[in-house]
């Protein structure tokens, strides 16, 4: 009887897909560790924690779309550049017209067009997504530098700054509220809609998805569109938070987004994914950054430790996948 119980519990643990939950485990361990070690340096204060969430908001939002991109077996390296370009466009439009609506339309249009171009390059011209978006990244980042000859553009419209950056509602920073909103939408689309299932099917087995009547090219284009729009919105938030547009916003964000998504349990080869996991992955990286700063590490040291932690986390989740049957 007892042995039966044991084998049952063994079976239960064996059937858990550890890589899916690894990010939560790592998060809890890291958080506990930092709370103990850095408690006296203010790690656990409400201010600090809210600050972390605010800082990670942009990566988190881009990681929602990033989950779709990677789950469908694609990759998008343009997101950081799109965020920068969108911030530039928004601040320039605000400077010229002071119309928030027009600024938003122009910023998001950039996201739509760059996503559409990425999607068309990948589906119609059959360019591997890594190369297509790497080229586009350079084009967009270069444009963001060129448009004002690398000068920053201040935003004087305080309504815009408050709604999209520095404001608070009920004690919560708007950036956190935007993040929550995007995650609710993302989770529902990913888990509950046909498009979400089709995204996973395309990433899991493109050929079979085609034989099941799924329009593969359409799914990929929508995924890139989504990624572009989410990145453009992240750019709007960058602009609001910094009360300016600057070409250097979002530098390296594409890598942070990929790291957050993969840490969150989405397979680089597509077919599986978790939107909530990406959020935890993104916050985990934010927490690590914050802790390293509190611990007084130099920026060089921070960069090294951050890299090591990402590698270790991915190794852990890979190890857990490789249990011998």
């Amino acid at each position: 009887m007892q042995s039966k119980e044991i084998s049952k519990s063994k079976l239960f643990f064996g059937s858990i897909e550890w890589n899916k939950y690894m990010v939560y485990i790592v998060f809890v361990i890291m958080f506990a560790l930092f709370s103990i070690v850095l408690g006296d340096k203010g790690f656990l204060t409400q201010n600090n924690l809210i600050n972390v969430l605010r800082q990670t908001a942009m990566i988190s939002i881009m990681a929602v779309a990033g989950t779709f991109v990677i789950a469908s077996g694609q990759i998008d390296l343009t997101v950081g550049a799109v965020a920068a370009m969108s911030a530039m466009i928004v601040s320039l439009v605000l400077q010229k017209t002071d119309s928030i609506f027009l600024a938003l339309v122009c910023g998001l249009t950039l996201g739509i067009s760059s996503g559409l171009i990425n999607g068309i390059l990948v589906t119609k011209f059959r360019i591997p997504p890594f190369l297509a978006t790497m080229g586009m990244m350079s084009v967009i980042r270069g444009s963001a530098m060129w448009i004002t000859n690398t000068a920053a553009v201040p935003i004087k419209n305080m309504t815009f700054n408050k709604v999209f950056g520095i404001g608070n509602i009920g004690g919560l920073p708007v950036l956190i509220l935007w993040t929550i909103l995007f995650y609710i939408v993302g989770v529902i689309i990913f888990n509950k809609t046909i498009f979400g299932r089709h995204t996973l099917a395309v990433g899991g087995n493109e050929v079979s998805a085609g034989y099941s009547g799924i329009k593969i090219d359409k799914i990929k284009i929508i995924v890139f569109l989504m990624s572009g729009v989410f990145a453009a919105f992240a750019g709007i938030l960058y602009a609001g938070r910094m009360q300016a547009g600057r070409f250097s916003f979002g530098e390296g964000d594409e890598m942070s987004v990929i790291a957050a998504v993969v840490l969150g349990g989405t397979s680089m080869s597509g077919g599986t994914g978790s939107v909530v996991g990406a959020l935890v992955g993104s916050i985990l990286m934010g927490v690590i950054n914050n802790a390293l700063i509190l611990a007084g590490l130099s920026s060089a040291q921070q960069t090294i430790v951050r890299g090591v932690i990402i590698v270790v986390a991915v190794v852990l989740s890979n190890l857990s996948q490789k249990q011998k049957r």
Binding site: R197, A201, N205, V207, I214, T272
Partner: peptide, 27 residues
């Protein structure tokens, strides 16, 4: 069409029985 190569064309191997069975029927 039940295609010739079920592993490559018929199924998404990494997904569950359920996900595969309902794929064309989602609407």
């Amino acid at each position: 069409l039940i295609p010739e190569d079920r592993r490559r064309q018929g199924l998404v191997l990494g997904h569950s029985v359920k996900s595969n069975a309902i794929l064309p029927y989602l609407r």
